[in-house]
């Protein structure tokens, strides 16, 4: 086994600092961080400057949409600024990538609301850390008739869904939840027991 990459020992301080910052990124260990740092040094200066500018550009221009809370460069975001087919329905998701996933389906014609996380005290996430208050604000006028809660079917997703549902119910807005069960195109024979049980629970009339 080779030893751990040396930190600091004989290495330029600015390089150490870059390595440390890079290793804080998700999925990057100390060794990968060091590889990236050395790549940055060897790459043409112009390329690196572009990367740095792109990073700065992101934090300066990207913000949260004041309506749906999705990440955007303009406020309100393009989706909220344009008229949509169905104003009366909001789909609540955990994170921006979930909006992309639902958009890809082409099956949803309403608006979105991004919570930016799920309730999980063990990860330090309590209701105040989520964009729930902003969602309730959006339901004040009578435009919205239905809220679809599209959080993941994990334990935290379920509890978050129940929490949001509990706040919305008194407002007289219909609350629905995404169906759970067999993925289409799959084979019943090969589905695991939990999935089959869920699909049976969620069965529907023809």
């Amino acid at each position: 086994m080779t030893s751990q990459p040396e930190q600091g020992g004989g290495q330029a301080e600015s390089l150490t600092r870059l390595t440390e910052q890079l290793s804080r990124l998700p999925g990057i260990g100390p060794r990968s961080a060091q590889r990236l740092a050395y790549h940055v040094i060897r790459a043409p200066k112009e390329e690196t400057r572009e990367l740095a500018e792109a990073l700065l550009g992101v934090i300066e221009t990207v913000r949260f949409c004041s309506i749906c809370q999705n990440v955007t460069q303009t406020d309100p975001c393009p989706r909220c600024a344009l008229p949509v087919e169905d104003q009366s329905i909001i789909c609540v998701v955990e994170e921006p990538l979930d909006v992309v996933a639902i958009e890809r389906s082409g099956a949803f014609k309403g608006r979105y609301h991004v919570l930016h996380g799920l309730l999980s005290p063990m990860d330090g996430v309590t209701p105040e850390n989520l964009r729930i208050r902003e969602l309730i604000e959006r339901l004040r006028d009578d435009t919205v008739k239905e809220v679809i809660i599209a959080t993941n079917p994990s334990m935290e997703g379920e509890v978050t869904a129940m929490y949001v549902q509990g706040l919305i119910a008194p407002l007289g807005v219909r609350v629905t939840r995404l169906a759970r069960g067999l993925p289409s195109g799959s084979d019943l024979e090969f589905a695991d027991a939990v999935t089959v049980a869920r699909a049976l629970e969620g069965r529907q009339e023809f």
């Binding site: 086994m1 080779t2 751990q4 998700p26 999925g27 990057i28 260990g29 100390p30 060794r31 990968s32």
Partner: peptide, 17 residues
């Protein structure tokens, strides 16, 4: 699996025993 990213190989030297 390397922390953060599932299923992506890491350099062997990154591990310690």
């Amino acid at each position: 699996a390397p922390r953060g990213q599932a299923g992506e190989p890491t350099a062997v030297a990154e591990r310690t025993i």
